[in-house]
């Protein structure tokens, strides 16, 4: 059986790498640019790079917010990458205050650190501390704790309920590097750019979505 995954294209960032990675993991990836089509899939990915506010506004103006919310409520698997992950939260404070999709109660804030020697964006490979509980174990199946992944961001999301996190990372402060809560997964790092281990997470997602 071919494993189908939808990749939501809403004009924020380059989806090519995500498609390539899904193909490499033997999934059939479909680019979805209209909200009504999401319900045809058991797994969907919300990618994205750029600023929180314009992306959130655009998703809402196209009706993606409701479609994604219905999709998640039906129990189907959703994965957000980078900005896509940040959009899952209630609010983002990038150049103002914006409402996100509110799938995960919490906020997205800029790194404000005492240590001025740290460079921003937080760019490169950093290791993560994986939470040892049921949902994170599914996301990180066959991946060792302290594994490194590729990050590039200046803002970070933090869920109100920390048990919705699946990993934490340190860069001046400890922040939430990924979430796994029921059928909602997301990561601040880029699984599609994190070599073999990143591809492993995408494979785990593809398998979970096609169960």
């Amino acid at each position: 059986m071919t494993k189908k995954i939808a990749v939501i294209d809403y004009g924020f960032g380059n989806i090519k790498s995500v498609l390539n990675a899904l193909h490499y993991c033997n999934a059939e990836a479909y680019v979805i640019d209209s909200p009504s089509k999401i319900s045809n899939f058991g797994g969907a990915i919300l990618p994205g790079v750029g600023a929180f506010g314009p992306a959130a506004d655009f998703l809402k103006s196209k009706g993606f917010d409701k479609a994604i919310s219905n999709y998640v409520n039906s129990g189907k698997m959703l994965y957000g990458i980078c900005l896509g992950f940040q959009l899952f939260f209630t609010k983002g404070y990038e150049n103002g205050e914006y409402e996100g999709l509110n799938l995960i109660p919490g906020e997205v804030r800029k790194f404000e650190l005492e240590d001025k020697t740290l460079k921003f964006p937080h760019m490169g490979w950093n290791n993560i501390e994986i939470i040892d509980s049921m949902y994170p174990k599914k996301m990180f199946e066959s991946i060792n704790n302290k594994e490194t992944f590729y990050f590039v961001h200046s803002y970070y999301g933090m869920p109100k309920d920390l048990s919705q996190s699946s990993s934490f990372c340190n860069y001046g402060i400890k922040f939430c590097s990924s979430i796994a809560y029921k059928n909602i997964w997301g990561s601040q790092f880029h699984p599609e750019k994190s070599g073999e281990k990143g591809l492993r997470i995408l494979s785990n997602f593809i398998n979970e979505a096609n169960k």
Binding site: S17, Y150, V152, S194, G195
Partner: peptide
């Protein structure tokens, strides 16, 4: 390259 290599 991007089809085969999954690092930046």
């Amino acid at each position: 390259t991007a089809e085969k290599v999954f690092i930046p």
